[in-house]
Design a binder for these strands. Structure first.
Lengths: 245, 245
DNA sequence: CTCCGATGGTGCACCGAGTGCCAGGTGCAG
DNA sequence: CTGCACCTGGCACTCGGTGCACCATCGGAG
């Protein structure tokens, strides 16, 4: 069943066929029940462990902090993303690749829409959770930026472009994701995200240099310019690519 | 004296000529002395108030949390930025305007380089401070995005573009800022930031127009340039191909 | 000068998150 | 059975943060 496998994924570990739901899951379930019915800050860790029927000490064994119980799957997702980026083929177009990496996060959210929507409502209200979410998102962004920095190494403004593109990708992804969450997680999230990421790709994607097949890869640069963008902008791009003449 | 006025600015209030340094400043000074010499987490609020010679309760009168003492001036700076954006002339180019708004933050950092560098080293090491800084930066980003959303209202993908551009501006600004901080705050920060923001402007600047699927291949021109050809020659070629001056 | 209210600093008791430490239980290999 | 590793629970403690009541100072009104 979908909800069961989604819960298992939330767990970050396979569910054993032999019942006995692991303590981690019980804690997440208990926590969310209390969070939605009486609020995050009004719920103490003691309340959670009492409802889950476990010792207080065990809570912090599974979750380093109270906030972590709200994001039980991000650690796993972040690892997936770094793996995905590390496994990139050499010839992959970098911007497209980070956009695909961002889609991994979307997939995680889409796997359990009701859970994601609940969490969204929580994080929107509680400042502490918002701050925590920011630090999570920041780690995704750094993973994307690290990959791009590697791909842009040697290029002038390589790290700058990497940071900016990573931020743009994350912002576009989050814009679409939040719009989907605000709608209650009903429609298709991926089309909206595709559109948003498309905008970023059109702004940063093909325009900067692709090396031609025949030539020595270092001494030729190909610029694709749209006729409707002003000439000075094309020249600016050229300067950036060529490293100031 | 420069350091004195910088400290006053850090205070967010004018320093009175008649001595009696305000408690806020004393707390910031005491806190930073302890933070740099024994670390942030190793310093308790009790240590700070003991060194400053005030009561523990007073600390939390001036700073809502221990983290806030590290960023004593951001609240003020954020207010300045929103004022700046609210006072934008109607005809201002939106992207340029948010770039200028970002420069306000840089100015704040540049006003007291040694303080900024110390704080940078702190936030780089301490995860809790990093998280706090993220939430501060997030508020700047939301201020920029809110302005852009207003300017892009009605445009297709208006909020999406607003969010992406705001994120890109913040990322570019932070990239340059951090590079300057890493250097010890010695050189000129503004030139680096200008260059970084220029890249964002060149990517998102004036010509938003028809993005993505609207343009067919007739609207695109491909230029192949050899790196050893001087830039002006390439530009000359471009002008010829595009048929405009 | 006295009274008075406002402002601002302080002490105190208290809550809740998070940690270190140790004890008990349970499954497993020797 | 015994030792061992591992998971769990309880206890005590630290520290950040808050509500409340108390007190000092100060400026103005009578």
């Amino acid at each position: 069943m979908s909800s069961s496998s989604a819960a298992a994924r939330r767990e970050g570990r396979a569910e054993s066929a032999s019942g006995r739901p692991p303590m981690r899951q019980a804690l997440v379930a208990a926590a969310f029940r209390l969070f939605v019915e009486r609020g995050y800050e009004q719920t103490t860790v003691d309340d959670i462990v009492a409802l889950a029927g476990v010792g207080r000490r065990s809570f912090f064994r599974y979750f380093p902090s109270k906030e972590d119980v709200v994001f039980p799957d991000h650690e796993r997702c972040l690892a997936d993303m770094t793996d995905f980026l590390a496994a990139s083929p050499e010839g992959a177009e970098p911007v497209r690749r980070v956009c695909d990496a961002a889609r991994l996060v979307l997939r995680m959210y889409a796997e359990d829409p009701s859970f994601s929507v609940q969490r969204y409502r929580l994080t929107k209200e509680v400042p502490g959770l918002r701050a925590y979410e920011l630090s999570v998102v920041w780690r995704y962004e750094r993973a994307l930026a690290a990959y791009l920095r590697g791909r842009f190494a040697g290029r002038p403004d390589g790290t700058l472009r990497a940071d900016v593109i990573a931020a743009a990708v994350v912002a576009a992804h989050n814009n679409a994701l939040r719009s989907w969450l605000r709608s209650g997680g009903l429609g298709d999230a991926s089309t909206e995200v595709d559109h948003a990421l498309g905008l970023v790709q059109s702004a940063f994607g093909a325009a900067p240099a692709a090396t031609g097949p025949g030539a020595d890869s270092e001494d030729v640069v190909v610029v694709v310019a749209r006729r409707d963008v002003p000439l000075w902008r094309v020249v600016q791009q050229l300067e950036a690519v060529l490293g100031r003449g």
